[in-house]
Each structure stands twice: as structure tokens, then as C-alpha cells.
Design a protein around this nucleic acid. Structure first.
Lengths: 331, 331
DNA sequence: CTGAAAGCGCTTACAG
DNA sequence: CTGAAAGCGCTTACAG
């Protein structure tokens, strides 16, 4: 009911009998430049009037808003949601805000968001699971601060990246499969325009080959990264007369879908079909404690992204975080 | 490498030989007011120059940004994530953006976000799972467009709400328990300052009482809404010498935690302990197809919220969406 | 149908 | 240490 408008910088300045420049300086804490007495007087006034800067003003004058964007395919995947969560925590602690855009693996949609975010004047954009798209190609040239997460930039190597060594992780999973003596072995990989999917697959494939057990084409299945697509990929591969003894899945969501299909077929894991996931989805602990997987440090990733977005990187760098093979019951 | 600055309204106006007012009018599509020829000329120029309005300018002059905020405890809960997803879809389709803030059920944090969002000049705020807090009390008075989702406003009844009839749903679950003849029956409810938790619990309790099987105190457990807290609440209630025959859980996440505890204790569901959840979390389909639950229409909720936030409500209203009892294997 | 001009709330070189 | 003033890029009443 209180129709009193929110106070502006000018209101505070007027009340304090100083210029807006001075108030602006104390708000932004350039303490060297304002005398202690004035500063204290103004601070008190700010308290009293409950002055809160209207950020649009600042944004216009600085030509940059207090906002960063996170573009990601789908936060219903709890692994992505965890990264978003960690990022948001750090961003909001720095008194900034995070806008969330779902790209749904769609280049056109990613481009719309990219343009929209630039027109919002965001301070930076994190791309968690970027897809190649014309707008992205432009954006990397234009100089907006970009951080690629999980998947590397499709347009060259000189861009900031936060993630793990997927090739090496895929390699490790293969070595585990060999140690368990699983045969034949199948892989359900994600879209190969994603560096994460590609490298996982290549590392796995190469290690199998080195071990003298090359992957066969009929056991190399291309799929998406959702539970639905894991289900349908598993349906296909388990339909063959020769069934795979073990499946390396593109991520945990895919493994969940595959698991569901195994259940339907009455196949036990690891007895009939060993299953290996990727990410260590937060739901594992409660609903799938049996799932062997590669733990990706999503919390650390969120923090790293925030740091890069907040401080602005002098030069692009690759941040390779440690991953952790989780051998549990399913493989 | 193209250091050409992005064109502004003024650049377009200059190129077209008209005033910025005119360009602004065609950008915002007030078609009555600009002659067809000028309009077409300007439109062509906009294309050519790839002009994209810098939204901060508009925001400052309108004193409202193209952004809406979603405040929610935790999107790692896939049910909340689904609502966020639906909302983001609709918002971004309207060429606006959604900022996501996690409140973690913490009043102080909620207040920080509330203030921050107002200082960003957001066009509206959706509170999915609001907690009572001083800042919220102020915000409801101040006239920011607010939409309460799932949980009603703790400060009175005259506020916009999108959700289901939780009392009635709790009632239905109790009637199912009675029909199954489960006894004794336990309930793990969420925080009672949440209307959703409170009403579910009350509906359940009242229906049990009407059926002549009132809930006992020792089988009424207060907990949080996470998997962790479901686990610990279940640990407590299953430690008693008399074990419950069935547990109504605050939501599916709590049911997952309880399920995990049952597994550890070697208790089967529904044979030893029947389990009932709430929400119909998207993960159910794949990892917990056995879980009986109340399906809440999260997609429809997301759309409804977007509509309210985008069009601005003339007067507050309650939007009660239909829910659906899902009787599956666990109860 | 179109334009000149004021205004939105900040920040920041420039002077003093 | 402090202030007057210009400027950020839009929108919009007001005139014509």
C-alpha cells in the first residue's frame, strides 16, 4: 500500500546535500575518493532510505549488465542441474544474477538465445553442452566472454573450456571392461559433434583396440543423451541375436534408460548385461547405487565457471578437472 | 575480429534519414503510426545492419526489464526443474529471459534474491516453494507482480497461486491406504510453513481419522523435502519396534530416500512397507516405475505461470490444476 | 505520419 | 575530496 517510490541515487544525493557523483562513489566503494565524514553520512542515509541501486541505470552507463547466462540443453538432467546450481550459488553470492536458457540441443534455439543474451548485455555466457551453430561461430569472434563447459568449442581450440579429459576417461572404462573380460562389448555414444561424446567414444574404442578386442560396428550405437534415447538405443542393441555382455553408455541418463529396458527383458546387471554410465548423476546415490560410472566434479565445475565469468579471463585456457572412476555393482 | 560496434537505434535512424522515434516505432511495431514506405525502408535497413535493440536502453526508459525471475529451493529436484523448464520455454518464446535463483528454503537467502530481483527491475517474480520471510512480506505489499507456485503466499489469501488442491490429494492417498487396509500407517511430512506440505498432511490425517484410524504421534514424522532427509526420516521411523506398514512421503524425493533405507534394511515394498510419494518426479518412469504417487501437472504449471507473468494479472486468482493419483506397485 | 526533446538512473572523465 | 555535465540507448508525450 506504500506508494512511496523507491529512492534513486538523486534522492540520496539531495538528502545528503551532495552530488550524485559522490553518492555513486560511496555506493561503489571507491573509498579513497570520498572523505570519511561524507562517506559515513551518506552510508547512514542509504540505510535509512533503504536505497537500493536500480541496476538498469548502471548497466546502461557501463554497457554491461550484472547478469551472466547459462545455456544448456536440459536441466531436467540432474547432472546439468547440479552444475547450474553450483554456478548460481557463486554468481548470486557475487551479487549478480544468472539467466538460464535451454537449448535442447537445437542450433537454431541456441542461436536465438545467444542473440538474445547479447542484446541483454550480459557480462558473460557459459555454454554447457554447446552445439555447432552459425550464431556461435559469430559469437566466438565477437569477443563476448564465453566459457565452454563439458563440450569444447566446435570452432577451434583457443577458447576457454572447463571439463574433464573425456578421452582418458573412456580409455579407463575400456580397461575395466577388459579386466572384467566382458565380451562382446557395446557402446551407446552421444552425438559426435559433442567433443565430450566423441572423446569418450574414441578413448573407449582405442583402448579396446589396443587390448585386441576392437569394437564391432553392430555394437556401436549412436544415440542422444536422454533417458528416452537410452531406452530406445538399448532396445535396438538388445534385439540382436547376439547380445552384448556389457554396454558403455553415453551418460547416466542413457544408462537409466538402458537399465529400464533390461528390466523389461528380465536381464540382470551385471550378471546378464553389465552397464556403465558417465557423470555420476546425483540420483545415483538413492535410486541407482549399483551403477558404475565416471564421477565428474560438477560442483567444482560450477565454481570454476563462476570464477571465469566473474573475473574475466585474460587469455583463454583449458581447465581440466579430475574425474573419478566409480566401480560399483553394475559393471 | 570485426571490431565494428553493434549498431544502435540512432545508427539505423541516421542511415534511414529519419528520427530515432520513427525507428523505435517500427521496431516495436506500432504499425498504424508509420507509413508503409518508411516502415519498409527501415525494416530493410534493420536487416542489413543486423540491428538488434540493446535492451538495457528500453528497460531504463520503461523502468522494467525483459526479465522474469524464478525463485525456487533447489532445481536438482527434477520436479522443480520440470516446472522451471516449462516456464523457461514459454518465457523465451516470448523473447524474454528467465533468471533462476535458488533459495534453499532459507528466508534470508530468499530475501536477498527478492531484493536483488527488484533492483534488476524484473517484470515479475514466480515463487516456486516460497518460505515466509520479511522481504516477502514487503514484496507482496509493494506491488511487484508475484506468482506463488505450489505453495501459497504465507501472508494472506488474496495472491495469485498456481498449484493443485493438496488437501484433497492427501485425502485421496489416505483413502487408498484404508482400502489397502494398511496398518499402522506413518506419514513423513514436509515443513508445515509450506501450504503444500501442511495441506497434504491435513488432508491425509483427516481422512484417516474419518476412517476410524487416526494417525498416532509416533508415526507422524517431520522432515525436509530432499532425498537425504527422506532417508533420515525413514531411518527414524523404521527404528521403532513397531514398524509402519505404509508410509506416505512428503514428495517423491523423500520417498526415494525412504526407499533407499528400506533397501538397506532388506524391506521390500509393498510387501513389507508400502511407500507413497508425491509429484510424480520425471525420474520415476525410468528408475522408480514402481512408486505410487500423485502426479502434479508440472508442464501445465510452467505454462500457466508464464502466461500470468507475461500478461500481468488484473486481479489475483487461484489456479487449481488437476492432479492424478498414480497407483503403481509400491502401495 | 513524423520529429525534436526530455527523460529513465546510473557512471565517469574532467575541472577545480 | 567533490561537483557539473555529458553520456549510455532507448521510449514517449507533445507538437506539428
Amino acid at each position: 500500500m506504500n506508494a512511496r517510490k523507491k529512492p534513486t541515487l538523486a534522492d540520496v544525493a539531495h538528502a545528503a546535500g551532495v552530488s550524485t557523483a559522490t553518492v555513486s562513489r560511496v555506493v561503489n566503494g571507491s573509498p579513497r575518493k570520498v572523505s570519511k565524514t561524507t562517506r559515513e553520512r551518506i552510508s547512514k542515509l542509504i540505510e535509512e532510505l533503504e536505497y537500493e541501486p536500480i541496476r538498469i541505470g548502471r548497466a546502461l552507463s557501463r554497457m554491461e549488465s550484472d547478469i551472466v547466462a547459462l545455456l544448456t540443453p536440459d536441466t531436467r538432467n540432474a547432472f546439468y542441474a547440479s552444475i547450474a546450481d553450483g554456478l548460481e550459488l557463486a554468481i548470486s553470492a557475487s551479487n549478480k544474477a544468472m539467466v538460464l536458457c535451454h537449448t535442447r540441443e537445437d542450433p537454431a534455439l541456441q542461436d536465438r538465445h545467444l542473440r538474445q543474451m547479447q542484446s541483454h548485455g550480459v557480462a558473460g555466457i557459459a555454454l554447457l553442452g554447446a552445439v555447432p551453430s552459425p550464431g556461435l561461430a559469430k559469437a566466438v569472434e565477437s569477443g563476448v566472454p564465453l566459457v565452454f563447459v563439458n563440450r569444447k568449442c566446435p570452432y577451434g581450440v583457443g577458447y576457454t573450456f572447463v571439463g574433464i579429459d573425456n578421452y582418458s576417461a573412456g580409455h579407463d572404462v575400456a580397461r575395466h571392461f577388459v579386466a572384467c573380460d566382458y565380451s562382446p562389448v557395446a557402446v551407446i555414444h552421444g552425438p559426435l559433434n559433442s567433443s565430450a561424446s566423441l572423446e569418450r567414444y574414441e578413448g573407449f574404442r582405442d583402448a579396446m583396440e589396443v587390448a585386441g578386442r576392437p569394437l564391432s560396428d553392430e555394437f556401436t550405437i549412436a544415440g542422444g543423451l536422454s533417458m528416452e534415447s537410452g531406452y530406445s538405443a538399448a532396445t535396438r542393441v538388445l534385439n540382436r541375436c547376439e547380445k552384448p555382455r556389457a554396454i558403455f553408455c553415453a551418460n547416466d541418463a542413457v544408462a537409466y534408460g538402458a537399465y529400464h529396458r533390461c528390466q523389461e527383458l528380465g536381464l540382470a546387471s551385471p550378471e546378464d548385461v553389465a552397464l556403465f554410465g558417465f557423470d555420476d548423476n546425483p540420483y545415483n546415490r538413492w535410486l541407482a547405487p549399483w551403477l558404475s560410472t565416471v564421477a565428474v566434479p560438477c560442483t567444482a565445475m560450477g565454481q570454476q565457471i563462476a570464477e571465469l565469468l566473474l573475473t574475466g579471463q585474460a587469455r583463454p585456457r583449458q581447465y581440466l578437472l579430475p574425474y573419478d572412476l566409480q566401480i560399483r555393482h553394475s559393471a
